[in-house]
Nucleic acid binder design. Structure first.
Length: 95
DNA sequence: CCTCTGACGAGTC
DNA sequence: CGACTCGCCAGAG
């Protein structure tokens, strides 16, 4: 994967407004990536300085190992994650 | 070169 | 709903 793509992903994540979430898949498409997994991988390696907590799975759930931290950070922004998932209204819609 | 393993997603049953 | 499968890219062993 090339650096330009990585930058696109980082920019997209940075562009997510507080209190709002987007899915790995959406980021992947818009950044021109073929797989959502790559977005996850990028965030794991190079996303420490990004609002990664605003990126959730397509069904609104969190990745297991970061669920607690993610829920905490979102709560600060006013997003109350009940039952380890984001409220339906904020959940990334499939279309 | 092959297999396994992910911060994933969509489709089937 | 949950459980499984397959496609996806890259790095590790």
């Amino acid at each position: 994967m090339d650096d330009a793509t990585v930058e696109r992903v980082r920019a997209l994540v940075r562009a997510i407004p507080p209190g709002q979430v987007r899915s790995y898949g959406e980021i992947a498409d818009e950044a021109g990536l073929s797989s959502a997994r790559l977005v996850g991988r990028l965030l794991a390696e190079d996303g420490h300085d990004l609002p990664w907590h605003r990126v959730v799975r397509a069904n609104g759930t969190f990745a297991p190992h970061i669920a607690a931290e993610q829920a905490a950070r979102l709560r600060v922004e006013g997003v109350l994650a009940a039952d380890g998932r984001v409220p339906a209204e904020l959940r990334p819609r499939r279309r």
